[in-house]
Design a protein around this nucleic acid. Structure first.
Length: 279
DNA sequence: CTCCAGGTTGTGT
DNA sequence: ACACAACATGGA
């Protein structure tokens, strides 16, 4: 057990098990904001504030059990990291991104978010999602934020609305995908194996191999996938024999890291991106 | 000004 | 099967 429960908070002692900055800034999630003295997160209709004090981290929330699951606090990362350390290429990335955890996010919210992420940068992805939340989301706890919109509200939106939100040409993908699948149908896909689920996701509008892998990893917590974006391509072509085909790169990396691929990917992505700067 | 960002789609070979 | 242009938008 890496945490203890308080009345309105969860406390984690070890920063190597839980580093809020690395968890939120490593590119897996867009529903957060850094404030002067804390981070706030607002997945689905939930809310939490994360504060570091005297070396310990506290997650203040009224939804204790939701965030124990969301932050995947019942998983011990020391074993995962020990296994990954057997690969020399992982040494620096793990040292750099210590305390990263893969979040357990809602599949539908993850799908919408990563369709917007395509050929886009993280700052603008967050902006577009915030625009959508602020326009059609419900008022959340203590009016501190707006919730992620319900499927029905999103289904009511026009293509032009998504363009106004800043989605650009992805507006059409969003409009179409909302007419192809709903959250309940998405949940039902959980019974499929990773390969079948991947194919089902790729059949959706705006979802190619990379977005599918991100939804598989962050929304369905399948770790035998390796999302390949521009940063991973850079990394791969620097440390392995260069390839142009992203699917081949992904395939080769899954062969190397097997069922820990998702974890390896996140450390490598965060490390590679750190050389340019956050944004 | 050009190039790039957690790529996908459509077209052509 | 693979190659490649087009696709909005804002920041560097």
């Amino acid at each position: 057990m890496i945490y203890t429960k308080g009345k309105n908070f969860i406390e984690i002692e070890s920063k190597s098990q839980f580093n809020v900055e690395h968890i939120l800034e490593c590119g897996q999630v867009f529903c957060y904001e850094k404030q002067e003295d804390k981070y706030i997160v607002f997945p689905e209709d939930k809310y939490a504030e994360i504060v570091e004090e005297n070396g310990k981290t506290r997650i203040y929330t009224k939804d204790i059990d939701y965030f124990i699951n969301w932050f995947d606090l019942n998983t011990d990362y020391s074993k995962i990291k020990a296994e990954l350390e057997k690969h020399a290429i992982m040494h620096e990335p793990i040292k750099f991104g210590y305390g990263i955890r893969i979040l357990k996010q809602n599949p539908f919210e993850t799908l919408i978010s990563f369709i917007i992420s395509a050929n886009n940068n993280i700052k603008r992805i967050k902006l577009i999602l915030n625009n959508i939340r602020n326009s059609i989301g419900d008022i959340g706890e203590r009016k501190a934020y707006k919730t992620f919109p319900s499927f029905d509200k999103l289904l009511d939106c026009s293509q032009d609305f998504f363009k106004t939100m800043g989605a650009g040409y992805r507006a059409e993908y969003l409009y179409k995908v909302l007419r192809q699948i709903n959250p309940r149908q998405l949940e039902e896909l959980k019974s499929l194996n990773t390969q079948k689920l991947r194919e089902a996701l790729i059949s959706l509008s705006g979802v190619g191999p990379k977005v599918a892998d991100c939804v598989l990893l962050f929304g369905f917590n399948r770790f035998d996938v390796f999302p390949v974006d521009t940063w991973i391509v850079q990394m791969y072509n620097k440390y392995y024999s260069p390839l142009g085909n992203r699917e081949k790169i992904s395939h080769n990396l899954v062969e190397e890291f097997k069922n820990l691929s998702g974890y390896a990917q996140q450390y490598l992505f965060y490390y590679q991106r750190s050389f340019i700067g956050k944004g």
